[in-house]
Every structure is written in structure tokens, then in C-alpha cells.
């Protein structure tokens, strides 16, 4: 039995059902349904504008859905009380695209920050816990640096240390390899895999990097124009005969067939309207 099959037997950590999201009148997500099972690494892939960042924001309860439901650890995000959300958020960690470290705090204080807010541990204990996590992400020795002094990779690793300092059961990564060179990016992928094994945590990764996705994913969800194209294991996605999926995998741009009348209409439309 391979790992993906093992995971499919476990309980779902996130269940998304018929999610619809809009910015103004523009539909960003259209009827998106999937689940993330305990202990698996789910990679959400798609090009720019596919809605993957919006989907992430919904799973983090930063945006409200127009319709459909998202359940995280069995809690319905639409009707969650602020107290439940507060507790829920202590069980999840997020590593943002550019780290989102607090600029006014040094590396160590950034990692300690969630502990300070959520626990009553004494200062030395918190420092030791922070250093343990910094050790995990290979950032030991850089405790006193300020975020502005860090390279992109270091900032991401620090953000990761901060995300895992409360020992979450659910981790989110937003574009972990964006802006990193291939070697550093591969290191980060290794780190994600190691963390999953060491902490028994479920991981959701949002990315547009194919190599990274294939390296770490148990399952991949491909989003295209707000719709789910395919959900499956790495092999299932690679061998999919869906043309759009293959286009994305082989980095082929899509030929859009233009209707000349409609094109002219579009160009002159607003001008005539005045």
C-alpha cells in the first residue's frame, strides 16, 4: 500500500464542499470541493489567476465564502464563533509567501511571538523552544538578526520556525519556492517532508512550481480559472489525459480562439457606450 492510499483511510482535516468565492462581481472560485486528510501533503497547483491564493485565504478563514462550506478539524468556517476560531488558529501554522515576519522584531522574537501571546511559559522556556525550532529549520546562530538582514530563503525558514513553534497539526505554505534559487528551494522541500514525518502534521502547499509539487506532494489538486481540473496522486496527475492538465504540466500556453466580431465588440464597446 503506498502512502497516498494510507492517507485516504485517515480522517479528513479539511473538507471543502462546493466553495464559491467572488471579488465584487468577479467569480474567483467556482464550486470547489476536495478534502485534505490527516498526515498528507496536499499541493494546490495552478497558474496565476487560477484562484489558488484565494482558496488558501478561505481555508485560513481570512475571507468569507459566498456559498459552500469549509470545515477545518470538523469546524464549519462559516458559522464558527470567534472563540472557536481563536483556539483553532493555535492548532494551525502558516508560512506566508515572503515570510511576513514582523519587521520590528528580531528572528528569535519573531519565533517566540506566538508563544508570548498564547502561553504563560517563562521567558527562558520560550527561548529554548524557539531555539529548538530554529535548529530544525537550520537557522540556529541567527537569532539576533533583524528580518531586513535576512536573505529570502532565511526569511522563509524563519517564518516556518514561527509557524511550527506552537506544534500545529495543520501547516499551510504559500508559494514556498517563489523567489528562491533551485538549490535553496529543494532544501525547503526536504524540510517540508522531514517536518511531516517528524511532527505528524497535515500540510497544504500552494504553489505554481511543478518540480517542487511533484517532489513533496502525496496528492495534487490542479485549479484552473477557479475550477478544480483534477485531484489525484502525483502519478495520476502526470498521466492524466486531460488536455488542460497536460498544457499546464508541459508549460504550453493555451491558444485562445478569437471570434473576430466579438473581438471588435470588446474593443469598441465602452467607447460607444459614452
Amino acid at each position: 500500500m503506498n502512502t497516498a492510499e494510507q492517507h485516504s483511510l485517515r480522517d479528513p482535516v479539511i473538507e471543502v464542499d462546493g466553495l464559491v468565492a467572488c471579488y465584487g462581481s468577479r467569480k474567483i472560485l467556482d464550486d470547489v470541493s476536495f478534502d485534505v486528510r490527516s498526515g498528507e501533503i496536499m499541493v494546490i497547483m495552478g497558474g496565476s489567476g487560477s484562484g489558488k491564493s484565494t482558496l488558501l485565504r478561505h481555508m485560513l478563514a481570512l475571507n468569507r465564502a459566498v456559498s459552500g462550506s469549509i470545515r477545518v478539524f470538523g469546524l464549519e468556517m462559516g458559522g464558527v464563533s470567534s472563540r472557536e476560531l481563536h483556539q483553532l488558529r493555535q492548532r494551525m501554522g502558516v508560512s506566508f509567501q515572503n515570510g511576513a515576519l514582523f519587521n520590528s522584531l528580531n528572528v528569535e522574537d519573531n519565533v517566540i511571538f506566538p508563544l508570548r501571546e498564547h502561553t504563560v511559559l517563562d521567558d527562558n522556556t520560550m527561548r529554548i523552544m524557539a531555539r529548538m525550532k530554529l535548529e530544525v529549520v537550520n537557522m540556529a546562530g541567527f537569532e539576533k538578526l533583524m528580518p531586513a538582514q535576512l536573505s529570502g530563503g532565511m526569511a522563509k525558514r524563519t517564518a516556518l520556525a514561527r509557524a511550527i513553534v506552537m506544534d500545529p497539526k495543520l501547516l499551510f505554505f504559500d508559494e514556498p519556492s517563489a523567489g528562491l534559487d533551485p538549490v535553496v528551494s529543494a532544501d525547503l522541500d526536504e524540510l517540508i517532508l522531514r517536518l511531516r514525518d517528524a511532527m505528524d502534521v497535515s500540510i497544504v502547499v500552494v504553489t505554481h512550481e511543478l518540480d517542487s509539487a511533484f517532489r513533496i506532494a502525496d496528492r495534487i489538486l490542479v485549479l484552473d480559472k477557479g475550477k478544480v481540473l483534477i485531484i489525484g496522486t502525483v502519478d495520476e496527475v502526470k498521466n492524466s489525459d486531460n488536455e488542460r492538465v497536460q498544457n499546464l504540466l508541459n508549460r504550453r500556453s493555451e491558444d485562445v480562439i478569437v471570434d473576430p466580431d466579438e473581438y471588435m465588440q470588446r474593443l469598441t464597446d465602452e467607447l460607444i457606450g459614452l
Binding site: L62, Q87, R89, Q90, F96
Partner: peptide
């Protein structure tokens, strides 16, 4: 820089 979002998701 998404620090506000980071605060929010930390509860």
C-alpha cells in the same frame, strides 16, 4: 507585507 494576515492566522 502580510504581517496583518500573519497576526490574524496566529489567532
Amino acid at each position: 507585507s502580510q504581517e496583518v494576515d500573519a497576526l490574524r492566522v496566529m489567532g
